[in-house]
C-alpha cells in the first residue's frame, strides 16, 4: 500500500513538471510500483533478493534523479555528482567529479562522452548496437544466479535520509566478491552498494550522501553543451568503421569459474590503438571479466603487470605476438585462473 501511494505521488510530481513525457513516465512509474508491490508481497515468506536486482535496474533506467555520492576504494574517498534524466529520445546521464581535476562523463543511448583536455570526446562505445539490460534477464537466468550467490535481506537501513532495504549477495565460492546493496524502498533506486572481500572487508563502496528523486532537475546540459557551458553540442564521431563486429575469434578460456558465461565477443576499435582489439566478456550476473587480445605493438613499457582500482583488477602480459589484458571486478586469483587458461584453439570463421 505504501508503495502504491508513493508511486502515485511520484506520478503527480512528474505531471506537473513535464507534460511531454507523462504517458511514458506513467507507464514506467506504474510498472515500477507493480514490481515493488510484487517484491513486497512475497517479502515475508522467502528470500527475494534476486527480484530486487530487476527493480533496481528498472528504477535506475526510468527515474529522474540528481545527487551527490561518495566512492570509497583503496583507502580513498572521492565525491561526485550524478544527474540522470529521461527524455523523449532516451536517457541522459552526467557524472562529474567534485574533487581534484575535473572529470565529466555523459552517457546517452549507450554512447559515452568523456571530458579529455577540456573537450568532450566520444568514446568508442559498443553498447548501442548490442544492448543489454538486467531488466530483460529471463527468470531462469535469475534463478541460476541463486546457485552462485545466496541472496539475503538484511534489514531496513537509512541512507542519505531515505529508508532502504539492505540485501546481501554472498557468493557460494571464494572466486568472486560479495555484493551488498541498499535499495530505496519507495523508488527502487540503488542508494548504496558495497563490494566485500572474503574476510568481509569493504573492497569498494558507493553511497549517496544527498539525492533528489524526481522534481525539477537541471536539464540544460542535455545533448547540447560541453563542460564549460559552451553550446558546442556533443560531438558525434563518424559512425563508419567505428562499430565493433561480433566475431568468433577462436580464443577460448578453459577454467572459467562456475556460472560465468560468455556474453560478448567482438572485434572493436579502441582509442589510441592502431588495430582493432578482440574483447571477450564473461559474466556471472553480478560481475564480469573482459579479455582483450591485440597485436603487441611494442609500445608497452612493461611486458607484464598487475594493477587494481577498488574492486577492479587488471593483469596484462605479452604472449608471443599478442598483448593479453584481463580486467574484471573479481578477486586477483580468479583473474589469474582465467588468464592461465586462455589459449587459441584455431580460427573458426
Amino acid at each position: 500500500m505504501v508503495v502504491l501511494h508513493t508511486s502515485a505521488l511520484f506520478l503527480t510530481g512528474q505531471m506537473k513538471n513535464n507534460t511531454q513525457k507523462i504517458s511514458a513516465m506513467r507507464v514506467s512509474a506504474a510498472f515500477c510500483g507493480l514490481l515493488l508491490a510484487a517484491v513486497n508481497v512475497c517479502a515475508g515468506e522467502q528470500p527475494v533478493g534476486l527480484g530486487w536486482l530487476k527493480v533496481v535496474a528498472f528504477a535506475g533506467h526510468n527515474t529522474d534523479y540528481s545527487g551527490i555520492f561518495v566512492y570509497q576504494y583503496d583507502n580513498r574517498v572521492e565525491t561526485s555528482r550524478i544527474t540522470h534524466v529521461v527524455e523523449p529520445d532516451g536517457e541522459y546521464e552526467k557524472l562529474e567529479s567534485l574533487d581534484g581535476p575535473r572529470h565529466e562523463i555523459i552517457r546517452h543511448h549507450g554512447q559515452v562522452w568523456c571530458c579529455i583536455n577540456h573537450k568532450m570526446v566520444q568514446m568508442d562505445s559498443q553498447h548501442q548496437q548490442m544492448g543489454s539490460r538486467f531488466t530483460d534477464l529471463p527468470p531462469e537466468q535469475l534463478s541460476e544466479l541463486s546457485t552462485i550467490y545466496q541472496a539475503k535481506e538484511t534489514g531496513i537501513e537509512r541512507v542519505a535520509g531515505y529508508n532502504t532495504q539492505a540485501i546481501l549477495f554472498q557468493p557460494r565460492d571464494r572466486l568472486r566478491y560479495a555484493h551488498k546493496i541498499w535499495v530505496h524502498a519507495d523508488s527502487g533506486l540503488l542508494l548504496k552498494a558495497s563490494v566485500l572481500g572474503d574476510k568481509n572487508q569493504v573492497v569498494e563502496q558507493y553511497a549517496f550522501t544527498q539525492l533528489q528523486i524526481g522534481g525539477s532537475i537541471d536539464r540544460s546540459w542535455v545533448g547540447a553543451k560541453d563542460s564549460a557551458g559552451h553550446g558546442a553540442g556533443l560531438p558525434v564521431s563518424p559512425v563508419t568503421g567505428r562499430g565493433g563486429t561480433a566475431i568468433n575469434s577462436g580464443w577460448v578460456v578453459d577454467a572459467l569459474p562456475a556460472g560465468f558465461k560468455k556474453t560478448w565477443e567482438i572485434l572493436r576499435p579502441m582509442r589510441g590503438k592502431h588495430a582493432p582489439v578482440i574483447q571477450i566478456v564473461f559474466s556471472d550476473g553480478l560481475s564480469a571479466i573482459s579479455i582483450f587480445i591485440e597485436p603487441n605493438d611494442e609500445d608497452e613499457d612493461d611486458a607484464e603487470g598487475w594493477s587494481s582500482r577498488g574492486a577492479v583488477n587488471l593483469y596484462h602480459k605479452i604472449m608471443g605476438n599478442q598483448l593479453i589484458t584481463v580486467v574484471g571486478e573479481v578477486p586477483p586469483r580468479t583473474l589469474m585462473q582465467v588468464f592461465n587458461s586462455i589459449h587459441y584453439s584455431g580460427a573458426i570463421d
Binding site: L53, V56, A57, G60, H61, F69, Y71, E78, S80, I82, H84, E93, K94, L95, S97, I105, R107, G110, V112, C114, M123, D124, S125, Q126, H127, M130, S132, R133, F134, T135, I181, L190, A193, E204, Y206, T263, W264, R268, M270, R271, G272, V277, Q279, V281, S283, G285, L286, S287, A288, S290, F292, R309, G310, A311, V312, L314, T325, V327, G328, E329
Partner: peptide, 23 residues
Amino acid sequence: DYLMAHQEFSPSTDMNGGASYIR
C-alpha cells in the same frame, strides 16, 4: 580505456548506472 571498454558490459553498470563509471 580498458576499464571503460569493460564497464560497458559489466552488470554493475546496469545496477549502479553511471556511478560505476567513476572507476
